[in-house]
Simulated assay, not measured.
Amino acid sequence: MKKQGTVVRWDAERAFGFIRSPQIPADVFFHLRDFTGHPGPREGLQVTFDEIHVGGKGPRALSVSASTNTILAPTAETPPDEAALLPPGRRATPRSTPPHLKKRDDRLVWSALGLMALWLLLWLIGIGLGRFPWVVLTGVVMLNLLTFYVYWRDKHAATAGDWRVSENQLHGLALAGGWPGAWFAQQILRHKSSKQPFRSMYWATVGLNYLGLLAWIFWPQLSGV
């Protein structure tokens, strides 16, 4: 039998939340993947769901959907749905990214790729000057693959409600030289790509990585050693 409740907590970053129902003494846990409907879960939304119990973890909700009798009061700030303004038989077309925003995103992508190319060039210069052995490139590649995997693991843990990787560990991998892998993970997995404090710290680790690499390569020449 379907139960009714209200979403009392929703963590969009970690993709899970809790439902409070008068029929159940404890708040009920649910994942985003257990929710069906549009636009998605939010705090205060009335829902129906099936309750299950997994081990000793407490109640969990499956087949969560918005209650059909949920009525959202219109506000002056909320414009009518575009579909309601179209003639019958026509569908609203999705909005494309404004040209100026698309150009800005393209510039950011090319800037990041340019930084990676320059970073790789510095490694090759260091190898040519005898500061690093050739085998170091293998270590750099492995570190970046590891960084991408750790991001993927953290993304999976966020949706599954499992143990998360700390942000300090992610920044540590970037600082050690895994920042290109971190960048690709942010773009491909869409993980940690919109959290501004994290992004600011990430770019700080990129700058520190550059400074450390430059100092290691050129300090002997500058100091006369």
Rank of each mutant, 00 (worst) to 15 (best):
M1A: 11
K2V: 12
K3L: 15
Q4R: 14
T6R: 09
R9C: 00
W10H: 02
A12C: 05
E13K: 05
R14E: 02
R14A: 09
F16R: 10
F18R: 08
R20D: 01
P22C: 03
V28L: 09
H31L: 11
L32N: 05
R33F: 01
D34E: 13
F35W: 13
T36G: 14
P41Y: 11
R42N: 06
E43M: 10
L45H: 00
V47L: 04
F49W: 10
E51Y: 09
I52M: 07
H53I: 11
V54G: 09
G58W: 07
G58P: 14
R60Q: 15
S63H: 14
A66T: 04
T68H: 12
N69C: 10
I71K: 06
I71M: 13
I71R: 09
A73W: 09
P74H: 06
P74Y: 05
A76K: 12
E77W: 09
E77A: 15
E77V: 15
P80L: 13
D81K: 00
A84S: 13
L85E: 14
L86M: 09
L86N: 00
P88L: 14
G89H: 03
R90W: 07
R95K: 12
T97Q: 14
H100T: 06
L101Y: 02
K103Y: 03
D105C: 07
V109L: 13
S111P: 06
A112N: 04
L113I: 10
G114V: 10
L115I: 10
L118N: 05
L120I: 09
L124A: 05
I127H: 00
G130N: 03
F132H: 03
F132Q: 00
V135T: 13
T138M: 06
G139N: 03
V140D: 05
M142F: 10
L143T: 00
N144Y: 06
T147S: 01
A158I: 13
G161V: 12
V165T: 15
Q169N: 15
Q169T: 14
L170H: 07
A174I: 06
A174W: 04
W179M: 02
W179E: 03
W179V: 08
A182Q: 00
F184M: 02
F184H: 10
F184V: 02
I188Y: 06
P197W: 08
S200A: 14
S200M: 08
M201T: 12
Y202N: 01
A204Y: 00
T205A: 03
V206F: 05
Y210A: 07
G212L: 15
L214R: 06
I217T: 07
L222T: 06
V225T: 15
V225Y: 01
